[in-house]
Design a protein around this nucleic acid. Structure first.
Length: 492
RNA sequence: GGUCGCGUGGCCGAGUGGCUAGGCAGUGGUCUGCAAAACCAUCUACAGCGGUUCGAAUCCGCUCGCGACCUCCA
């Protein structure tokens, strides 16, 4: 393999270029991803982001890096609007349902974990919560004030963007000029406390009716949304760490402000590589809660949604997402999901076939090493899973041909193939076998008896009986396949 | 309005200067009692116009269409 293709390259939002990945302290890698705000069910767009970063996490580990992956839970401070005057999302929901805010947080955190588990997303190394880090956030605000980048008004603390922008490039992540940003700011009510239109809250004094509140040097109140990520990433990954990720809709405000806060506090660029995932779309439009076109995971799994013909399994959906690059929009449709379902089954059954394969010759009539190189080349090129999958499908044709005795494979190549498919498909892509594995003695014994009876019927050309057995088993979800020398079965 | 991005064959979706992406669907064949699966072959492309180049889906310009952000959103 070329040395080039061995190196992992990452598209960095900061530079807008693909850069060779060089961790600060190899083999350690610090990665922070903005997690969910747990005030309602996760929708599928969120899931796409977490699945994308799960693959990135898995691949980095596969390459031998020791990754500390921090993904937060936002359980306070996320307001309804960015005017810093709206209600806290959690508190609002709590009021609506007459529950403690922490009951809301608990319910949707549990639900979130359950969905992540269904998608076979690995838990992060650390999953810190905003409410668990109020002290860290207060300390950070103190420093920012000391450094002169924040001011206090009526018990609330605001970040001074214009002051910051005098010495720093505020728009370095979103590529916009300060004047343009200011020119495009809408006049919003409730902003009278802010000096500049781009200033944002670090600490917000709680109104009397606000139920989520903590004491601070400035007021009894709560932290601003952007602050938690800066405080927690600094605490667990240091003032400067390797990778920060999230959905691309976080670029213009959340991540831009995160950088500003961190720099204002620690005087250093906090992140080397920014990775942003693109949106999931429905009929070409961004899937979002406010547009009402979002799917909940369980609606997708069960098919219980007006836009869906049927349900699709978590692994089908995961595979579907991996067939597109994380940085492209991905459009949701029944046709696309159906194709993905079939493709996923083709991949999985090829692995079952591969597991049973025996070396058939001293040589292989397929370049297995080249296949392996191409798969890694693809993944090293900014985690290009669609290309890697395409390569795996090239290999599947070979695997099936060997099984059909139309091609040969050497022992060494067979080993390489098995290792490649297992490590990429299961370890890196995080896919798993969904077909029910029931290898109990009883079932296997029963199936052998049934297949033997049917075999006799077939030898006697009693097609009526043999077809009846096959049809009735199919109704139970057991699929029989007659090949030349044997009949195999699978449970679906 | 400002900033940015996109437009690929029936559908999804890679690819950024010259070599078949891939999946699903279709067509023909092999295999098969049939079915399924599999294998082989094969069809449908690069929004439009102009430019650069020996050569462009790929670079540049214009036009048209779509989207994202600028308001909470992964």
């Amino acid at each position: 393999m070329e040395k080039n293709s061995r190196q992992l390259k990452i598209k960095n939002t900061l530079s807008r270029k693909k850069e060779v990945f060089e961790p600060i302290n190899p083999p350690f890698v610090g990665m922070y991803v903005c997690g969910p705000t747990v005030y309602s069910d996760v929708h599928l767009g969120n899931c796409r982001t977490f699945i994308s970063f799960d693959v990135i996490f898995r691949y980095l580990k596969h390459l031998g890096y020791k990754v500390r992956y921090v993904r937060n839970i936002t359980d306070a401070g996320h307001l309804e609007s960015d005017a810093d005057s709206g209600e806290d999302k959690i508190a609002k929901k709590a009021k609506l349902e007459q529950l403690e805010p922490m009951e809301i947080v608990q319910r949707y955190t549990v639900d979130f974990h359950k969905v992540m588990d269904q998608f076979n997303v690995l838990p992060p190394s650390i999953e810190p919560t905003a409410t668990g880090h109020i002290i860290e956030q207060i300390e950070m605000i103190k420093k920012i004030i000391e450094n002169g980048y924040a001011y206090v008004v009526n018990g609330s603390v605001y970040f001074d963007v214009e002051k910051y922008a005098q010495e720093n490039d505020y728009g370095e992540l979103n590529g916009r000029k300060l004047e343009d940003l200011i020119a495009n700011t809408r006049e919003l009510g409730g902003q009278d406390e802010k000096r500049g239109p781009l200033d944002f809250a670090l600490w917000i004094k709680a109104k009397p009716e606000h139920i989520m509140r903590w004491p601070s040097p400035w007021s009894v109140g709560f932290p601003g949304w952007h602050l938690e990520c800066s405080a927690m990433s600094t605490k667990y990954l240091g003032e400067k760490f390797d990778i920060h990720g999230g959905g691309m809709d976080l670029i213009p405000t959340h991540h831009t402000n995160e950088i500003a806060q961190s720099r204002a506090c620690n005087h250093t660029e906090p992140v080397n590589y920014w990775i942003h995932t693109n949106m999931l779309t429905v009929n070409g439009q961004k899937m979002s809660k406010s547009l009402g076109n979002s799917f909940l995971p369980h609606e997708l799994f069960t098919g219980n949604h007006p836009l869906l013909d049927k349900g699709y399994s978590p692994m089908t959906v995961r595979f579907f997402m991996l067939q597109a690059h994380y940085s492209s929009t991905l459009d949701f449709s029944n046709d696309a999901l159906n194709s993905a379902e079939k493709g996923y089954h083709r991949l999985m059954s090829a692995i079952v076939t591969l597991n049973k394969l025996q070396p058939s010759s001293e040589t292989s009539n397929f370049n297995v090493q080249e296949l392996k190189d191409k798969v890694y080349e693809a993944l090293n090129d900014d985690f290009n899973t669609p290309i890697a999958i395409a390569q795996l499908f090239e290999g599947i044709r070979f695997i099936n041909s060997v099984a059909d005795k139309k091609a040969t494979v050497s022992e060494k190549d067979l080993d390489t193939l098995k290792t490649l498919y297992h490590s990429i498909v299961f370890d890196v892509f995080g896919l798993k076998e969904e077909i029910l594995e029931d290898n109990s003695e009883l079932i296997n014994g029963l199936m052998k008896i049934i297949i033997d009876i049917r075999l006799k019927a077939r030898k006697n050309k009693d097609w009526e009986t043999s077809d009846a057995i096959r049809d009735q088993l199919k109704e139970l979800g057991i699929i029989l396949k007659d090949s030349i020398d044997e009949t195999t079965w699978t449970i679906q």
